[in-house]
Write a protein that binds this DNA or RNA. Structure first.
Lengths: 212, 212
DNA sequence: CATTGGCATGAACTATCGTTCACAATATGA
DNA sequence: TCATATTGTGAACGATAGTTCATGCCAATG
């Protein structure tokens, strides 16, 4: 009663479903929600227009499902780093560096999420709500780790929520840039530089290394 | 031959032009480029549909002009802070804190720019190019200031370009959040916390760092 | 073989959008 | 006042979109 139920017909159906999703993902992530038509998705997936509506109630629902899948996959890569072992600094470090893997493995899905990131009504209020929810799923654990570091005296006494938002925004910007133009920047190297910025800060705090 | 040329007719025309621009700005910044129609703009501005085309060649051109104006006004507030007097730290500090003024005075214009910030084909490639240009107009002077601080030994030896991108992304995220929901967060206070994060970094540099 | 049920089809429907244009209104100037 | 030019009008046009539905196809079932 568990897994072996889907008998042929059902498997075919799921395969078709996946083909539609995959065609839609490619098109949406390249041209944005509003610049892709259901006809175009159907043609790309090699189905008729009406067939899409046997699987998805509307264009928005199709997009919504892609968004959720993309978010879950990316969050699944990056969130565990915050909960593993090691002190707070190591955890943040892992979290930051994992963004290179996201850029490599989830490039198209990432663009689906980040490209139309901040629109208010681009694809309906339901999509907007989901995006906010995703954002909090990153920001909350992130600020928890930072808060923990502050509590233990390992971090400076900064606001964990603001710090988490800053770090998250910076990572999103750099990761998106790397996805859009993979040859331009070495994301791995840039992420190490991000670490340097956020861990040590800009202003020189300690030993006299001044020369001017 | 300088200023007193516009005689009545011309002044009226410019006034009508401004009314159209102002109605369009409000609508675009609330609903996004694709969710506003020319008939809606016309109705809001109390003109006929065709009248808009006496002033603007197309919907995209209308949006483009608003985008440029919004960018110039915001950049005009924030960029001078990077070139004034004071050392690098003071200049960055001014730059960061001025974002509160932008959020106050340019709220709607800011949303026009930030809401559809990262779309690829949302409103045409020309708009995209302009947005990239605006981004560089912030990032370049910003990284120059940081580089100067590094050169003089006042800042840690971090990559100025990456640091500038991080700071810019963080400021955009926080400012947009404050514009979208003015009551939720005190932007002034948050910006000071951003300063703390970027200037001093997360990890404690001074007293005994390791404990485990 | 005939029946049934579900999936695929794609033309058609409705709605909306950006844009145009023939025309009206109004101001200008002789 | 009349001729003229400029601006405003809004119905209409063509294109395109999301969605529907009557129909055809095929596999499974009796």
């Amino acid at each position: 009663m568990l897994a072996q139920k889907p008998s042929r017909k059902e498997r075919e159906r799921q395969r078709h479903r996946q083909e539609i999703l995959s065609a839609a993902l490619r098109l949406f992530s390249e041209k944005g929600f509003h610049n892709v038509s259901m006809q175009e998705i159907a043609a790309t997936a090699e189905f008729a227009t009406g067939t899409l509506y046997n699987f998805f109630a509307s264009k928005e629902e199709l997009f919504f499902e892609l968004l959720v899948a993309a978010a879950e996959e990316s969050l699944g890569i990056v969130l565990p780093a915050l909960e593993g072992d090691g002190d707070e600094r190591r955890r943040l470090s892992r979290f930051i560096r994992l963004h290179a893997r996201i850029a490599r493995e989830q490039a198209i899905a990432l663009r689906l999420y980040l490209l139309e990131s901040r629109g208010r009504c681009l694809s309906g209020p339901r999509v907007e709500a989901k995006k906010k929810e995703i954002d909090e799923q990153v920001t909350k654990p992130l600020s928890n780790v930072i808060a923990s570091g502050v509590r233990k005296g390992r971090f400076n006494d900064i606001d964990p929520v603001v710090a988490a938002k800053c770090l998250s925004a910076a990572l999103q910007a750099l990761t998106l840039a790397a996805v859009e133009d993979p040859q331009a920047d070495d994301l791995d190297a840039n992420l190490k530089k991000v670490e340097a910025v956020f861990f040590d800060g800009l202003v020189k705090s300690r030993g006299g290394k001044r020369d001017a």
